[in-house]
Design a protein around this nucleic acid. Sequence first.
DNA 1: CTAACTCCCTGATAGC
DNA 2: TGCTATCAGGGAGTTA
Length: 276
Amino acid sequence: MPELPEVEVIRRGLLPHVIGRQVHTVACSGKNLRLPLPEAALQQWVKGSAISDIRRRGKFLLFLLANQEAAMIIHLGMSGKLGIFPAAAPPGLHDHLVLTFTDGSQLRYNDPRRFGCIRVLPPGHLAAADPFAKLGREPFADDFSGPYLQEKARGRLQPVKNFLLDGQMVAGIGNIYANEILFVCGIHPTTPAGSLSGRQWERVAAATQSVLSRAIAAGGSSISDFVNSSGQKGYFQLELAVYGRAGEPCPCCHTAIAKQVIGGRSTFFCPCCQKG
DNA sequence: CTAACTCCCTGATAGC
DNA sequence: TGCTATCAGGGAGTTA
């Protein structure tokens, strides 16, 4: 399940294989992702264009198209994968979008659960309006800080775990890393977001950056897997302290890790270390 | 305005 | 062994 670090690793892995490549043909599976695949717009604006850059915002990838200032947005959802393949490689069962470049290589989007989405921004849309305007700040942006989080959380009664998961507060944090960040901070996941101190928000901001950057570093070794990856491995994972470890000893104090459903999501924490 | 729901989907796993 | 039930989750949308 790709969160910000995985998406960033994918971006870096794809970059050298798509920059400057011109899209020769576009093929769609015809099945709906979370939203219908915009096939007409893909044929109109993506086909024939060269990819000039890939940017990331939260868990979204933004493919910039060279000629006509159009763009394509891809969100990988739960099970989405992007890989570079030779055209002769056997097609995947759940390939929903295949871009064939003029050199014969292909960028394939594969997504068994179809929780992802693909959008096309026609020319001018990107310049006119930020498609990610509603997203919260990027964890690695200069203006991401404890005071920013505290201001966003002011007056909120929702659990801090849900706050961190809300893309309109912070972009790119999913369930796994929300759990890990709160463990690093020693903060109980049900603590009302608005009640955290400035000192605690400083810790959350710092832990967010350290956990995510360690995860990106852990994924660095898998960047080469995006090429010719007929057997592309599942997403790498940072060594996780609490996520998925209900009943196992806390790496810090050896108390059994607790599991509790918060906001409809499995939540893991150490009842001893996370009392704040 | 916030917060808590609903829906989308299939593969892995657990239980019988 | 083969079936069925459960769970995993992000974001857009809806409701209270």
